[in-house]
């Protein structure tokens, strides 16, 4: 079975990506009762994934990185999605390879005011619809996407509902009672 680490090393060399290794609930050190997650020695500087190795990619290089990965065996794009944060929008790509059963997550950080990134639908057709969804709900523009239209909401819809600052008369907020 092929290993993921050489591919990540190659990515770091060629495209200057940042690797965020797998994390998880650390096992309890001796002397501490099991079951209670021990606090990590130093606070993690950025979000890590419990299941996927993350590679942070410069948005300008996403197409080159994806073409390289597709050529090195990542033949399956699980999905493209995004998450909105106060300072940035993260676009996420989940890849895997069917032959080696490898998994990888790509992460691109975009500015909130004008998020734009190259479409990877030329590499994997599986990106066509998810990219439309991200455009619809987050307002991320995918350059060179063949058919970038809203997919769930009507064309006249204003705003991008999955952004955290989206407000609407229809949106009912849960009362904060009980959450302290």
């Amino acid at each position: 079975m092929a290993e993921i680490m050489p591919i990540i090393a190659e990515l770091e060399k060629r495209f200057a990506v940042t690797h965020i290794p797998l994390g998880g609930v650390p096992s309890a050190p001796p002397g501490q009762p099991a079951g209670q997650p021990a606090p990590p020695a130093q606070p993690a500087p950025q979000a890590f994934s419990v299941t996927e190795p993350i590679v942070k990619v410069d948005p300008k290089k996403i197409l080159a990185v994806c073409s390289f990965l597709a050529a090195s065996g990542f033949d399956y794009l699980l999905t493209v999605t995004a998450a909105d944060f106060p300072q940035r929008i993260e676009v996420l790509y989940f890849l895997c390879s069917m032959s080696g059963r490898l998994r990888l997550e790509l992460k691109c950080e975009l500015p909130r005011d004008k998020p734009e990134i190259d479409s990877v639908s030329g590499v994997w057709k599986a990106a066509l619809y998810p990219e439309r969804e991200v455009y619809d709900l987050f307002g991320v523009r995918f350059r060179n996407h063949p058919d970038l239209r809203r997919i769930f909401l009507e064309d006249e819809f204003e705003g991008y509902p999955l952004r955290k600052d989206y407000t609407s008369d229809f949106l009912v907020k849960m009362p904060e009672v009980g959450f302290r």
Binding site: G23, A47, S49, V50, T51
Partner: peptide, 8 residues
């Protein structure tokens, strides 16, 4: 816990 993500 903060700053975690997961794909299941």
């Amino acid at each position: 816990p903060a700053n975690r993500e997961v794909l299941v």
